[in-house]
Design a protein around this nucleic acid. Structure first.
Length: 487
RNA sequence: GGCGCAUUCGUCUAGUGGCCCAGGACACCGCCCUCUCAAGGCGGAGAUCGCGGGUUCGAAUCCCGCAUGCGCUACCA
């Protein structure tokens, strides 16, 4: 079976991770079946349209490598793929519904509708349209139209019967049509509602599977009504659960970063985000956690989709990102790091960033970094000679009450570094350990003093590798500076 | 108010009648390794499977009720 699957974003805001996760599953299902992944822009809400949203949507998909076979920018045989360019289709089928007496024009004002709703709420009645215009005489309808009133088109929902469908993850779902009111299919501005637009486009574009968020479950019977009235066969529906914030409320801006682009900017890798999102609401087995995109494509299946809402666990994502960072080829890491440092390092760092230094830095920091935005802070000492420490940081606990000892140690280290025959980390380590012996100081204490002197921080990449990379001249300079700060 | 969906360690999840007094991963704790921090190795703690009834020799798994959460109930999607 080759599926035709669509991702139908609505450009009303920056898409958050939950939304992009449905795109990921759409894509995975399409790729697994060898079918097509289609992007269709649902810009039918003119009031909420946000031009920036579209770019963010495309950027999010591209960043994760979710390429589409049909849609905006790539075209396809079923276009256009932007709903605002397909208005004539919706108008045509809306008219057909009216002609076959499955729909009618309604002239009720939004004010009347609002009052009606308020009244029903007060009476503890389910809010629903009272069908005021359903039996409007033809001449009155014509008169309203002639007077310039713009009607909406409402569907004539049957009073009796049940609508059911078999959801690929939820199973059999059933609704009484009596609980569904005469919903709007075409708005007065000529744009369709999502119900009509979904049905018309999914049919015309020959979509085989509709994978979407579970907030659509309740709308599905309305859409099935439309399919039946139009004489079409509905696709297979697959409703996937939503993603929640840590407080179990639906994920929103309140929870911090919610767009995948935010995570990209913080230094998460697309492959980590892909893996992480792919394992929310889907699993391979009882133990696999790290999976490549090829494995996802090979094994993805609707049967293994879960149905419960899931909390977005940032710590898990961060761990996973670290795992990917550790596995990345050195070349790619070097490129990634260089780009990042170019951007994040303070102005006093030497520019352009020395790619060769970065290359040698990679093995020292790759397993210490979980997100790329930690990199600049961690490696600043290799690109700038202004180290952020004072006497207190330099002396630390061990030399707090022994300035003379610290000064002696730094002086001795200075001499030892100058006298060293070679310059590699193994030789440096041998020399420094010997020095600790001579000074009758614990190696750990000496090393911490040197660490701060060399890198400016109590937490750093391995000391001797760092010194090797810094070079003898700079090390000598830094030892002298350290001595000066505690003079 | 009505309708619908969901409910396994703090979190993501495995589990489709006996292999489960429930497995993996993140986070947490301890030990080992170690020049700091990580990474890695080993181990630990953590779930009366939302609650209550059934069915069955046997239930996390099947049935019924309840509770809770979420969604829809818009000329939003």
């Amino acid at each position: 079976m080759t599926a035709r699957v669509r991702y139908a974003p609505s450009p009303t805001g920056i898409p958050h991770v939950g939304n992009i996760r449905t795109a990921l599953f759409d894509w995975l299902f399409a790729r697994h079946s060898g079918g097509s992944f289609i992007v269709r822009v649902e810009d039918t809400d003119q009031a909420r349209f946000d031009p920036n949203a579209l770019e963010a949507i495309y950027a999010s998909l591209r960043w994760l490598g979710l390429d589409w076979d049909e849609g905006p920018e790539v075209g396809g045989d079923y276009g256009p793929y932007v709903q605002s360019e397909r208005l004539e289709h919706y108008a045509k089928f809306a008219k057909q519904l009216i002609d076959q007496d499955d729909a009618y024009e309604c002239f009720c004002s939004t004010e009347r509708l609002a009052e009606l709703r308020a009244e029903q709420q007060k009476q503890k009645q389910p809010p629903r349209y009272d069908r005021h215009c359903r039996e409007l005489p033809d001449d009155e309808r014509a008169a309203r139209g002639a007077a310039g009133d713009k009607p909406v088109v409402r569907f004539k929902t049957p009073d009796e019967g049940t609508i059911s469908f078999d959801d690929a993850v939820r199973g059999h779902v059933e609704f009484e049509t009596a609980t569904i009111d005469d919903f709007v299919a075409l708005k007065s501005d000529g744009f369709p509602t999502a119900h009509l637009a979904h049905v018309v486009d999914d049919h015309l574009m020959e979509i085989s599977h509709v994978l979407r968020g579970e907030e659509w479950v309740s709308s599905t019977p309305r859409q099935i009504l439309l399919y039946e009235a139009l004489g079409w066969t509905p696709p297979t529906f697959v409703h996937m659960s939503v993603i929640l914030g840590p407080d179990r409320a639906k994920l929103s801006k309140r929870h911090g970063a919610v767009s995948v682009l935010d995570y990209r900017d913080q230094g998460y890798l697309p492959e980590a985000m892909f893996n992480f999102l792919g394992l929310i609401g889907w699993s391979l087995d009882d133990h696999t956690v790290l999976m490549s995109r090829e494995q996802f494509i090979e094994h993805f299946s609707l049967e293994r989709m879960g149905k419960n809402p899931a909390v977005f666990d940032l710590e898990r994502l961060t761990w996973m990102n670290g795992a990917y960072l550790r596995e990345l080829p050195e070349e790619r890491l070097t490129a990634l790091f260089t780009e990042r440092l170019e951007r994040d390092l303070p102005a006093d760092a030497e520019r352009p960033i020395d790619r060769d230094v970065v290359r040698r830095l990679v093995p020292l920091v790759r397993e210490r970094v979980k997100k790329l935005d930690e990199l600049a802070e961690m490696t600043a000492g290799f690109f700038s000679d202004e180290l952020p420490y004072g006497p207190d940081e330099l002396l630390g606990k061990k030399f707090r009450d022994d300035r003379a000892g610290a000064t002696a140690a730094l002086t001795a280290a200075h001499g030892s570094v100058e006298a060293l025959a070679g310059w590699d980390h193994a030789a440096i380590e041998v020399a420094m350990r010997a020095l600790a012996d001579d000074l009758d100081v614990k190696a750990g204490a000496l090393f911490m003093l040197l660490r701060v002197a060399m890198t400016g921080r109590a937490v750093s990449p391995p000391l001797f590798e760092s010194m090797e990379l810094l070079g003898r001249e700079r090390c000598i300079l830094r030892l002298a500076n350290a001595r000066d700060t505690i003079k």
